[in-house]
Every structure is written in structure tokens, then in C-alpha cells.
Design a protein around this nucleic acid. Structure first.
Lengths: 193, 193
DNA sequence: TTGAAATCGGACAGACCTGTCTGTATGTTT
DNA sequence: AAACATACAGACAGGTCTGTCCGATTTCAA
């Protein structure tokens, strides 16, 4: 039945990850116990531990998945904004807007994970890596846009994105992403004269 | 022995709050148990529960104190920036810079608390209230600065502050506050023509 | 059909957590 | 001296958490 591709055995693993994603995002890493993930995913505890040797590793897998997804969203938003790099930088905030629309109130999985994990932990390292990758990519865009100071512009933009994502967990104000986008436009215009 | 002022009986309460502040800030709300606060503050468990009926109330007291302190820092930074409201808006980021310098790596107590508390909880409400108060005050400053759209400028500025504070827990880059400050200057200049 | 891999269901150990309770010590007020 | 407020020390109950283990059952390809 399977196609030529690898496609090993998705069943349980995917259900666990989907449930973990849903619960961790809403209630936080420490706010969700293994037992709850078991119960809501309908998977046996031994199965979960067969796939993920510890809760820490499950958390790591959750963050890896979130990283891929969120960077995909950002990429899509940039593509949707057209071919002008300046517009792409501004268009990034459509991804933020989508995030607000998709699930308001839960914030950025990475900022949240960093808040809950010890500064040296693997979860902390994963979020650090994610933010760095995003900033790097935004810098690339800023260079394409011909900014005077691409690193500076990338920093400004990512600070703004993080601020908007952090605020998502605090306030439901659906106008925030648009405000962030407008702010970004001011910054991009000022940086590329 | 006591002076004429009220000054009831600080001893234990202050020690508990100081310890809680230190531990909660670093390890998170759920990462610190009552027993640890007992041990490190050198206070008896019954004494702690005499002052704070539950951990939730201790957390609330911790957040109230953090709110007063942080708003005080912001106010001081504004005052130190002189009498020009535009300079005051930009000067806010000196408070962020001080926070980085004081304790790098621990981030904003409110963003962290929001990440760890359920969306409806008292801790969550406390952070929401704090952010709202700050934004309100920044809007007041923006009005004084003669911004075309004071609300918009206040939103931009607070988004930037939150972004910088969220990033404080992620990266130790001490250049971030200065970058945020430079960004703020661009925004303020663009908003007050 | 058969055999191996995956999954199930749930008991269990050991650690940790919050909050209660009992009893004692110390110093201040009346 | 008696009463009171505050603090101490620590045992304890009841709950939750992670992770282990074991036997029974399902799935699926050969």
C-alpha cells in the first residue's frame, strides 16, 4: 500500500506529537503531564516511551516540529508578498497575523518554552537556535532589500515579531499584527533609502 | 524601637518575597517549590503560610512587586532622559539596557509568568494588567511628544520593549537594547514630524 | 498461516509538591 | 505574671509526576 518513499510507520508517533503540540502550546510544558498526553492521544504509555525515551525528548521533538512549521509560515508569507524584498520583509507580519487568527492567546512556543526551561537545558537551546535561524534569514532578506544596515534592520524586525508573538499570549487584540506590520513598513522604508 | 511610621513587621515577609523573586525569576513559577523557598529564605513553612495563604497568592505578591519595580525603572529612565517627551520615549530603552546588565538571561517576569499560567488565572490577569498600564503610560508620553498617532506609536514602542525583554531570556547579546533603542528613535522621528 | 514488531492496559516505584498540623521558643504588651 | 504575636522545626496526608515493567493483543508482511 505504501508508496516508494520511506514512510515508515506514522500511526502512534504522529498522534502523540499532534496531541503534545496541542497541549503544550496551550498549557505549557510543565503544565501537561505524560498521563494527559497518553489519555488524549489514545496511546499506551509504553508506546509513548517506545517513541520518546523521556519527556525532555518529546519536548524537543515538539520544538523541532514547531520550528519547521513556523519557518515555513514565514517563508510562505514572504513568497506571497511578491518578489520585492522590501515587500517580503513587511509581508512577514502576515504570518504573525495568521498565527493570531489561527489560535489567539497562546503565544510563541519558543518564548514560552524558554520561560519554562532552565537556561542551560536542551529546550532552551532549541529555542535559541530557532530564533537565531529566523534572524539570519531575515538578515538575508534585508540584504536583498538593500538596507544600509541589514543586521540592524533584521534585529529590528525580529524584535518586533517577538514582541508581537509575546503579546499574543497576553492580549487578544487582533489589531496588533497590523500595527506591527505598519511599524515594520516604517522601519523598512527608513532603512532602504 | 520602631520609628513613628507604620512599618509593621517586615522581617520574614520581606525575606520570603526576596527569595521568591530571585528563584521565580530564574527557574520559573512552576520550577520552584514552596520547600525550596522555605529552605533558601530560612523561614519556617508555617510562617510562609501565615503570610501567604497559598502559592498562588505568593506568586501574585511577587508579580505586584515586580510591576511596581519595573514601572519605577521605566519612569526613572524617562526622567533621566530629560524633559523632551521624544527623548523620554527613546530613553525608555535605557531601562531595558539596565535590565540586561542587572541580570542577563532571565527575561521579563510577566511574559514568563504568562507562559506558565493558564489564560484565565490570576497570574495571567496580573501580567495583562501590567502590560496594559505600561502601554497606557507610553501612550501618554507619545501624546506629549506630539505624535500623529499616539496610540500607534505607543503600540510600536511597547512591542519593541516586549520583544527585547522576551529576547533577554533567549540570547545574552548585550547589544540588543541599544539596537532596540536605535529602532525606537527611528520610529519616534517618523511619528513626530 | 505464522512470526515479529508494534501496541495496549494498567499496576507500580520513587520522587516531589502543596498545604495542614502539632508543639516549642522568644519577645512584647498589658 | 499572664496573655499575645510571631517565628521555628518538622512530621504528615493526599495528590501528581515521570518512568519501568509485564503480559496480552493487534497488525502486517512473508
Amino acid at each position: 500500500m505504501s508508496i516508494g518513499v520511506v514512510e515508515k510507520r506514522p500511526a502512534a508517533r504522529e498522534r502523540i506529537l499532534a496531541t503534545a503540540d496541542e497541549l503544550f502550546r496551550v498549557h505549557g510544558l510543565r503544565g501537561v503531564g505524560i498521563d494527559r498526553i497518553i489519555a488524549e492521544s489514545g496511546v499506551a504509555k509504553s508506546t509513548l516511551y517506545a517513541h520518546f525515551p523521556s519527556k525532555d525528548e518529546l519536548i524537543e521533538a515538539y520544538l523541532v516540529k514547531a520550528d519547521e512549521r513556523w519557518r515555513g509560515y514565514l517563508r510562505q508569507a514572504a513568497i506571497a508578498a511578491g518578489s520585492d524584498p522590501k515587500e517580503q520583509l513587511v509581508g512577514l507580519f502576515d504570518a504573525v497575523d495568521d498565527a493570531y487568527r489561527r489560535h489567539q492567546l497562546y503565544g510563541c512556543p519558543f518564548i514560552n518554552a524558554a520561560a519554562e526551561s532552565e537556561p542551560g537545558s536542551r529546550a532552551h537551546a532549541a529555542t535559541l537556535q530557532h530564533k537565531k535561524a529566523v534572524r539570519e534569514w531575515v538578515r538575508f532578506l534585508a540584504e536583498g532589500a538593500g538596507a544600509d544596515d541589514p543586521v540592524g534592520l533584521a534585529t529590528s524586525i525580529t524584535l518586533l515579531i517577538d514582541g508581537a508573538l509575546a503579546a499574543e499570549r497576553l492580549e487578544q487584540d487582533p489589531a496588533l499584527p497590523a500595527a506591527a506590520k505598519a511599524t515594520a513598513r516604517v522601519l523598512v522604508d527608513a532603512a532602504c533609502r
